[in-house]
Computed example of a mutant assay.
Amino acid sequence: MTAVIIEDEIPAANRLQKLLISKEFEVLTTLHSVKNAIQWFKENNHPDCVFVDIKLRDGNCFEILDKITLKSKIIFTTAYNEFALNAFNYNSVDYLLKPIDEEKLDKLILKIETLRIGFQHEFSWKDFEQNDYQKIKNSFLVSSGSLLKKINDLDIICFYSDNNSTFLLNNVNRSFIVNKSLEKLEEELNPNLFFRINRKFIINKSYIQNVKNEYQKQIFLSIKTDFEFIISKLKVKAFLDWYKK
């Protein structure tokens, strides 16, 4: 997931950035004032999440939210709890008191993941009536030498990212470049068949041979490839719920 931090205390901003990166977030930028934040959101695509301090050097974050309609999930971070009620008027996901407790941050991220997975299955009746709602993608055209090769989703072991490129690995362990990000693939693939286990891999349930719980700390998947598949700790519960269906 992507994130933006709005925080005018540099040590607090740096600590939060390190925490988020360790939780597999991509932190796009850190903003330090109301003015800079408004300008940035006008000129850039909105991230999945915004972690925003309430009191900033040139005002408070509600001035930003009154001028910009954020398409992101909003998480307020502050040392003051008297703003909690007002914060929830802006459809925030949660409210974290500083200094941020890592265990509470983990619970928040699990909550965000749960919301995100649920939203992926929603569609509007307007889209349905217009016949332009998003359809599940069940095959891919890839380059194989000078030819184009069609690969069905049932024949794909996994998708993975490497050196800023995305690849699919088929059932005979051949890799092909796919011109889409893992984020985009998550939206298009059959959610009953595919699951993103971490920042690098989306795997196909059909090829999972075993699920190993290593010392009660990490979950490994046994699949006949040269890759090691380790499920992100924050996705273990969602993965197990998906896998047992």
Score class of each variant (00 low, 15 high):
residue 245 K to A: 03
residue 118 G to Y: 06
residue 128 F to V: 11
residue 161 S to G: 12
residue 176 F to I: 09
residue 58 D to W: 00
residue 95 Y to A: 10
residue 14 N to P: 01
residue 162 D to C: 13
residue 192 N to I: 14
residue 142 V to N: 04
residue 152 N to A: 12
residue 206 S to F: 03
residue 133 Y to N: 10
residue 169 L to T: 02
residue 212 K to D: 02
residue 212 K to V: 09
residue 103 E to M: 09
residue 226 D to K: 10
residue 184 K to W: 01
residue 138 N to Q: 10
residue 5 I to W: 02
residue 154 L to Y: 06
residue 96 L to G: 02
residue 70 L to I: 03
residue 183 E to I: 11
residue 201 F to H: 05
residue 113 E to I: 08
residue 118 G to C: 09
residue 234 L to W: 02
residue 21 I to C: 09
residue 229 F to R: 09
residue 60 N to L: 02
residue 43 E to C: 08
residue 185 L to I: 09
residue 134 Q to M: 15
residue 223 I to N: 00
residue 83 F to M: 11
residue 222 S to E: 04
residue 62 F to N: 04
residue 185 L to K: 13
residue 102 E to S: 15
residue 46 H to S: 10
residue 93 V to Q: 03
residue 193 L to N: 06
residue 216 Q to E: 03
residue 128 F to S: 09
residue 20 L to C: 10
residue 100 I to M: 12
residue 7 E to V: 08
residue 181 S to W: 09
residue 25 F to C: 09
residue 64 I to V: 12
residue 179 N to S: 08
residue 45 N to I: 15
residue 138 N to I: 14
residue 77 T to L: 13
residue 16 L to Y: 04
residue 196 R to M: 05
residue 245 K to V: 05
residue 30 T to V: 02
residue 103 E to S: 13
residue 4 V to M: 01
residue 110 L to M: 05
residue 245 K to M: 06
residue 115 L to C: 02
residue 133 Y to F: 13
residue 136 I to W: 02
residue 242 W to Q: 14
residue 9 E to H: 08
residue 168 L to I: 09
residue 75 I to K: 05
residue 85 L to V: 15
residue 152 N to P: 07
residue 108 L to V: 03
residue 110 L to S: 06
residue 234 L to F: 00
residue 51 F to C: 14
residue 99 P to F: 05
residue 74 I to D: 04
residue 185 L to T: 11
residue 148 L to H: 13
residue 62 F to S: 04
residue 31 L to H: 00
residue 8 D to N: 10
residue 93 V to K: 07
residue 245 K to Y: 06
residue 193 L to C: 02
residue 2 T to H: 10
residue 95 Y to Q: 07
residue 172 V to A: 05
residue 124 S to I: 09
residue 188 E to H: 03
residue 233 K to Y: 14
residue 63 E to F: 07
residue 209 Q to C: 02
residue 13 A to M: 00
residue 75 I to A: 14
residue 50 V to I: 14
residue 134 Q to Y: 07
residue 134 Q to L: 13
residue 22 S to E: 06
residue 194 F to C: 13
residue 50 V to F: 07
residue 82 E to L: 04
residue 148 L to Y: 15
residue 146 S to K: 10
residue 1 M to D: 07
residue 125 W to A: 08
residue 221 L to V: 04
residue 170 N to M: 07
residue 34 V to M: 02
residue 187 E to C: 12
residue 218 Q to K: 11
residue 197 I to W: 06
residue 68 I to Y: 10
residue 114 T to P: 01
residue 103 E to V: 14
residue 182 L to C: 12
residue 220 F to S: 11
residue 166 T to Y: 06
residue 38 I to L: 01
residue 235 K to R: 07
residue 71 K to M: 05
residue 1 M to V: 14
residue 227 F to K: 01
residue 109 I to R: 09
residue 235 K to S: 00
residue 151 I to F: 13
residue 176 F to D: 08
residue 31 L to M: 08
residue 9 E to S: 15
residue 78 T to D: 14
residue 16 L to N: 13
residue 191 P to E: 04
residue 132 D to C: 12
residue 92 S to E: 03
residue 166 T to P: 09
residue 220 F to R: 13
residue 186 E to V: 06
residue 124 S to V: 01
residue 222 S to T: 07
residue 72 S to D: 00
residue 53 D to I: 01
residue 104 K to F: 12
residue 23 K to Q: 10
residue 38 I to A: 01
